[in-house]
Simulated assay, not measured.
Amino acid sequence: MALGLRHHPGRHLATSRRLRRSLAHGRTRSKPVIQSTNIERSDVPTQTGDGDPRPVILRAENVSVSYQSASGSRVDAVREVSLDIREGEFVSIIGPSGCGKSTLLRAFGGLTRTSGGSVLLQGDPVTRPKPDKIGFVFQDYTLFPWRSVLANTVMGLQFRGVDRREREATARRYLELVGLDWCADSFPAELSGGMQQRVAIARALTTDPAVLLMDEPFGALDEQTRTLLGGELAGIVEKTGKTVLLVTHSLAEAVFLSDRILVMSARPGCIKEIVQVPAERPRTEEFLTSALFDEIRAKVFASLIEEVHRQAQANEESRRAAQRG
């Protein structure tokens, strides 16, 4: 991985070794659990599993999202999604392009208004962004190029009016957690893409959100860097105990990181299947080559590819209709 102009190799390697050691004790069990649902129904399974004592932190109740297209027609992006996410859980959303994954994530975070149903965070309705309780990490790093790494990382705390000394101390702790405390005075242009995304993750964590929403955070990175950051993210989540909802197109990423994987249908998107990953977190790199990993990945792929074909067919029918019109 290219590491930018102010590279500190010894420190970075030591951090990588620490993060890998934090993934050192994962164990796997036998078979994935598949919860199948009829995609026409709204009463999809909403629990993480029988006997799970963790409280529900984020809930969707029959959430639908519709909007008007540029041509004036109604577009149903998400239809009647119901879901419970428990405290400390890592849940991934996967589905065909255009199925409403990011729209659903934005609705969870209060960035997109729902057309029906409701989203609840710790029992309270989410109708607008809650930066003190919901953190976001997007594919675009959204770092300000004229601000240093430290100055970018403190922004959430600065907006909340936290004292400068306190916010900088907090930011430095999270930069250390992501292995970038040594480049706090660097600027984004001096960092690789992977390093910039680490800064974005540190910035999201500084406000201590109850839930972290991540929309394809590693989508713009090369495969090797993506795999490395996935392992580091797993370690960070274990250390902080955060609840994470991740949108991804990567089957391997979803299986490696998640407690559950939500497979969404073609548009209008709803939850087609919920796949549980019965392997303790954090997971080692060896899990990526295990039989259980291959089995779960194959199950998710089989469910996903059906929806990819359905979406492609729908897109082609729309194209033909537009030509006839």
Rank of each mutant, 00 (worst) to 15 (best):
A60Y: 02
N62D: 05
S64K: 01
S66H: 06
Y67L: 01
Y67N: 06
Q68H: 15
Q68S: 12
S69T: 03
A70S: 10
S71A: 14
G72R: 00
A77V: 06
R79C: 11
R79P: 13
R79H: 07
E80G: 11
E80A: 15
D84C: 13
D84Q: 15
F90N: 14
F90C: 14
V91S: 11
V91K: 11
S92D: 08
I93E: 04
I93C: 13
G95P: 12
G95H: 09
G98Y: 02
G98K: 13
C99T: 08
G100N: 08
K101H: 08
L104A: 14
L105C: 08
R106Q: 12
R106P: 10
F108E: 05
G110N: 07
L111Q: 03
T114M: 13
S115I: 06
S115G: 12
S115V: 06
G116N: 06
G116H: 05
S118V: 08
L120V: 01
L121T: 07
D124G: 07
P125F: 01
V126W: 03
V126Q: 10
T127Q: 14
T127V: 13
R128H: 08
R128F: 02
P129D: 01
K133P: 09
I134K: 09
G135H: 02
G135M: 05
F136W: 09
V137F: 06
Q139L: 05
D140K: 15
Y141D: 05
T142H: 09
L143Y: 00
L143A: 05
L143P: 13
P145F: 05
W146I: 00
W146R: 12
R147N: 04
S148A: 09
S148R: 11
V149M: 11
V149G: 14
V149D: 04
V149S: 12
V149R: 09
L150C: 10
T153A: 14
T153D: 03
T153V: 10
M155R: 09
L157P: 15
L157S: 13
Q158D: 09
F159H: 12
V162I: 15
V162G: 10
R164S: 14
E166R: 14
E166Q: 14
E166P: 10
R167D: 12
R167S: 14
E168A: 14
E168F: 04
A169V: 06
A169P: 14
T170L: 06
R172H: 08
R172Q: 13
R173N: 08
R173W: 04
L175G: 12
L175V: 10
L177A: 15
V178S: 15
V178P: 15
V178D: 10
V178A: 13
G179V: 04
G179N: 07
D181K: 13
D181Y: 02
C183Q: 02
A184F: 00
D185K: 10
D185H: 06
S186D: 04
S186I: 01
F187A: 03
P188W: 00
A189M: 06
A189L: 05
E190S: 10
G193K: 08
M195K: 10
M195N: 15
Q196P: 11
Q197M: 02
R198N: 08
V199F: 00
A200T: 06
R203Y: 03
A204T: 07
T206H: 08
